[in-house]
Design a binder for these strands. Structure first.
Lengths: 208, 208, 208, 208
DNA sequence: TATGAATGAGGCTTCATTCAT
DNA sequence: AATGAATGAAGCCTCATTCAT
């Protein structure tokens, strides 16, 4: 019985995947290198051939996922039809889908847990994720405001609001298991979110 | 090393306060009983006179804070003026204020980090916090919809949206330190949130 | 069965003693904290109540022994009879005795092994042990040279020579086990050392 | 990362040299096979083609160096001029030179550190190095005593004394870095050593 | 012969928990 | 009720050794 196989040329990715799973499932501190190794089908020592330390592994995991996620973000600067609502709805569906992808929810869970306690993660968020994501959407909103398609509202706050509406669903439904208490179909969620975001919840005309 | 008056009758509360601080600051696993004890001005062994274990302490901390927070929630079923917008803005301010209170942000941080890994916390959230909070707001929205003041929209989703907009600010600004990157005044946030929530972001009339 | 007794008020000394034994016997790197603990009649964790780390323990051990040894050194500046030879022999016996004491040979062994690899030990030797010991003896020799009792010879080198003759016996006989190959009585050694040191090994008069 | 000519026939010597360096620098236990391999310009696995284990490598290193050193020792049984003092001084210089050669000091360091903990090294010392070196010098001294050139003194002790005076300089100056605290020229050392060894340090005639 | 990926035993260190005082 | 010394179970990490290539 072969004690091990030679590396399939992407041990690192293999390890990163296992680490994300275990970190998300157990939390960073509770996760053990042994468990990650087992989950990756190797042994503890092997991890250290590719990552200097447990914390290093955490950073690598998050960096990799963040990059993957950012690469997925559709370019909002592409040509936008004059009727932005259906367009936005489409983008929104793609975005919620990306957010709800297993790797993404796991990454979010890890970030939520560790960002406060790992300065490097905080830096990653503050200097890379936040500004980039914000610029994308806020830029789009600003352009539409200048075009007159949207009302003049603080674009950074509006961006955050929009993101918050998406995020809260991932957080509660996926991560906190609220789907068992209050099940919701993602499509309905996206539609309602944009309905509110674009039109507000007040009745339009004067109340009868 | 504050040498306060010895008030043994307050021991439990004293410990709970210290524990919340340390749990929020370091995370549950990284927090040590020694640190909590020191922060409470007592010694490690004493904690065990009041709490069976570290995990027990965590549960007690969250239960206490959750109760405090719930007690704070203004009853939305009270008489509501026919013009709900300024009323909502007022409630929103109070709510964001409560969410941003130090104890609340700390509790949120701990919940975000540990809920997934501590079944009892998950239960607490799913069976107590979520339904209660949801019922409050969703009930209010439903009532207004029936009254014709609000458009007919899935009230649970709408509730979640509204909460998401508030929550995302606490999360990013307070917990993730985004306030240094994108500072925002709470009042402006509340106003913009309700502006969007009630009126939407589209320009009203036909585009010029 | 009591799992442990409350500290006999000198746990630290107890641990230091055990550590010196094990360090000398196994070498620093091969010594395990478990072994030291067992040898001290306690458990591993307890050591860390008194010493920050294994290396810290090593330093504490050496510092303590060095101090003890230095305190033992008879003051050579005391009144010296005009006939220094028997006086020196007496001091020499005391000195060799001190060097051959179990704690001293163990300390020497540890220093010989680790000094090169532990900067703090090197510093301890270069800045404390060496200058102090050298000053003591070299000062004495210089005084006697000025008095005319001894020939003018570089006192530092002479000191080192005298020390070297003592040291080599401790090293070879005690530490390297040469006593089984070439047994020697300490008294004879001291006598011969001083015979050579004072009178040289050449025949006095012209060779017949 | 010297990319020398590949001279596979020299592999063992190459490895032995690197091992001596690393063992002396880090100590046996702290030395890693990886470091030794790198220092030899090969990889870890290759070492095991030539040496069964780390300990085996240590023994081979010491055996090789001991042999080299012994081979260097000038035969003292060669014809000795009737005036032994300048002759001895010459031999002494050669001997101190040999002792201070880099390979020798490194070997000494390793022996000092490991002899106690590696039975095979102890045996090597007690059964090979010590008797051979002792016989050489003690034989010489005995001959001179019988000739009447030297006083009758225990030749084994005298040998050890002489060696001790040389050794202490290598130990303190070279290995312990005392040369920075008390610099000494090797020639002066040799001269003083023999001055003391032959003539003693007492003033010859009656004190004035 | 040489490589270097993989292993797994072992050690240092931390810390929740216990318990004699 | 309070203390804090002591315990011992983990967990991270290192590294000698093996072995497929």
């Amino acid at each position: 019985m072969a004690r091990w196989q030679r590396r399939p040329e992407d041990r690192p990715r293999q390890i990163l995947g296992a680490a994300l799973d275990v970190f998300a499932d157990k939390g960073f501190a509770r996760a053990t290198m042994d468990e990650i190794a087992e989950s990756a089908g190797i042994t503890k020592g092997t991890i250290y051939l590719y990552f200097r330390s447990k914390k290093d592994l955490l950073l690598a995991v998050i960096r990799a996922e963040l990059e993957d996620f950012m690469a997925l973000l559709p370019s909002l600067s592409a040509a936008v039809p004059s009727d932005i609502e259906p367009h936005a709805r489409m983008l929104g569906r793609a975005f919620l889908g990306a957010l709800m992808a297993p790797a993404a929810t796991k990454t979010i869970q890890v970030m939520l847990s560790e960002l406060r306690h790992v300065p490097e993660l905080k830096r990653l968020y503050q200097e890379e994720a936040l500004p980039r994501a914000n610029a994308q959407v806020a830029g789009f909103l600003t352009a539409q405001m200048e075009r007159g398609a949207l009302r003049a509202v603080d674009p950074t706050i509006a961006t955050r609001c929009l993101f918050g509406m998406f995020f809260i669903f991932v957080l509660t439904q996926e991560l906190f298991g609220a789907s068992r208490v209050t099940p919701m179909a993602p499509e309905t969620v996206v539609d309602t979110v944009f309905d509110i975001f674009f039109h507000g919840i007040l009745t339009k005309g004067p109340m009868p």
